[in-house]
Simulated assay, not measured.
Amino acid sequence: MGVRGIRGAITVKEDTSTEILEATEELVHEIIGQNQILPDHVAAIFITVTTDLVSDFPAKAIRKIGGWELVPLMCSTEIPVLESLSKCIRVMMLVNTDLNPDEVNHVFLREAKKLRPDLADINALTSN
């Protein structure tokens, strides 16, 4: 068993606590479901937000998921690159798994699909 990084991202329409927490929960549940992840297999989760999201910590949403309260989480801000995708939450989940790199399902939702269309296309093929 090795450690794999599983990526994900989602956007919100507005910078509100409710939108940030609901979007983070949606994204993490999708990553968990597509990759059959148990909290005991997670080494850590790194979460970044664009600098226009300041209303809440996305990690709060993950801590509310049953069994995930003790998973190490860290929030940070993204590098503010000009003309980059706004109102975006990104996740890097480090997971102990037997999955090969080509078996990992990275999840990009809403406008975040633009970040990695190559991975969005692969996931669309494997989830159908």
Rank of each mutant, 00 (worst) to 15 (best):
M1A: 13
R4D: 10
G5E: 14
I6W: 03
R7F: 13
G8I: 12
A9V: 01
I10N: 00
T11K: 00
K13T: 06
K13D: 12
E14V: 00
E19R: 00
E19G: 00
E19P: 00
I20M: 05
I20P: 01
E25N: 15
E26G: 04
E26W: 04
L27V: 02
L27K: 10
V28W: 01
V28E: 03
H29G: 02
E30F: 11
G33V: 14
Q34K: 15
Q34N: 14
I37S: 10
L38F: 06
L38K: 11
P39D: 13
A43N: 13
F46N: 02
F46W: 08
F46Y: 02
I47G: 04
T51W: 10
L53R: 07
V54C: 11
V54I: 13
V54M: 13
V54Q: 05
D56W: 04
D56M: 00
F57D: 00
F57Q: 03
P58E: 08
A59D: 03
K60L: 03
A61Q: 06
I62C: 11
R63P: 00
R63Q: 06
G66Q: 14
G66C: 10
W68F: 09
L70I: 03
L70D: 01
V71D: 02
P72N: 00
L73G: 05
C75R: 02
C75G: 06
S76P: 05
S76I: 09
I79T: 09
I79V: 14
P80Y: 11
P80D: 15
P80S: 11
V81S: 06
S84F: 12
S86N: 13
S86L: 10
K87Y: 07
K87I: 07
C88D: 02
C88V: 05
C88A: 01
I89A: 04
I89T: 07
R90Y: 04
M92P: 02
M92R: 08
M92K: 11
N96I: 15
T97D: 06
D98C: 05
L99Q: 15
L99V: 15
N100C: 08
P101L: 08
D102N: 14
E103N: 11
E103L: 12
V104Y: 01
V104P: 00
N105G: 10
H106I: 06
H106Q: 03
H106G: 02
V107Y: 02
L109A: 06
L109T: 07
R110V: 06
E111M: 12
A112E: 12
K113N: 09
K113R: 15
L115Y: 03
R116T: 07
P117C: 08
D118L: 12
N123V: 12
A124T: 11
T126M: 10
N128S: 12
